[in-house]
Amino acid sequence: MTPNPILGCGIGLRFQHIDQILAEKPPIPWLEILSDNYLIPGSVQQDYAIEIAQHYPVTMHGVGMSLGATDPFNSEYFLRLKKLADQLNPAWISDHLCWTSAHGWVSHDLLPLPYTEETIKHVVQRIREAQDRLERRLVIENVSSYLQYQLSTLTEWEFITAVAEEADCKILLDVNNIYVSAFNHDFDPCRYLDSISIEHVQQFHLAGYEDKGTHLLDTHGHPVSDPVWGLYKLALQRFGALPTLIEWDNNIPSLEELLAEAHKATEAHIHAFA
């Protein structure tokens, strides 16, 4: 069955809003389901996700594939993810261009990779394997980062472009993450945008960061900042009015407030081309 089309500006589904969404069924263009929270087969949490997917177009977004790790893939993780996808019929599945596990330990945080030719080869092979396991093309997201490795020889935009091309996957461009990393590593975010090939980008993410003085922290705990709205407008002009999603994970606001933030993104779609 062809999944429902993903159009316009949606929101990430959070536990706090599920009961309200199911009870009131407010108009929401689409919802992103954080896969990792629904991976116990036959659990009540999956029941909720399945019910949401019956009423709204959904995508699945994950944090646990650990695409850049050198530990072997966790087969159980991929089996459960595939099974969930079979039930939710998402338009696509995304995860991050990063690693989360090593040494048998799992950080549950998104850790950056060293940007080298060697890493490209490794990650490309891992993404291909992940795509085979899930029997679909993946969408990979740029992470925000707070450190750069001595080892890195490439810029992040060179790295992500090469990976997407060679692994034949799509890109979820997180505009806030670009802005956060640009501040933290002192590069020009516009240059980043301009270097990403148009045909690879599938979707945008927007979120709010926290200014810690010495660095920006990607806490998803605030409204989208003005400079990120500015960068988003440039992204729309370059890549077109692609589906966009608001992520909010800390200080989670009311559903109404969250939808209002998504509405601002919809308005940006209109004004970007005015």
Partner: peptide, 27 residues
């Protein structure tokens, strides 16, 4: 979804879903 009457507790998703994964950083 949530009933609160003396001594008996029935709770739903709002009360039971422990904070799950997210892609946000934390301080």
């Amino acid at each position: 979804e949530t009933e609160k009457c003396a001594g008996i507790v029935k709770a739903g998703m709002n009360d039971c879903g422990a904070n799950g994964h997210s892609c946000a950083g934390k301080a």
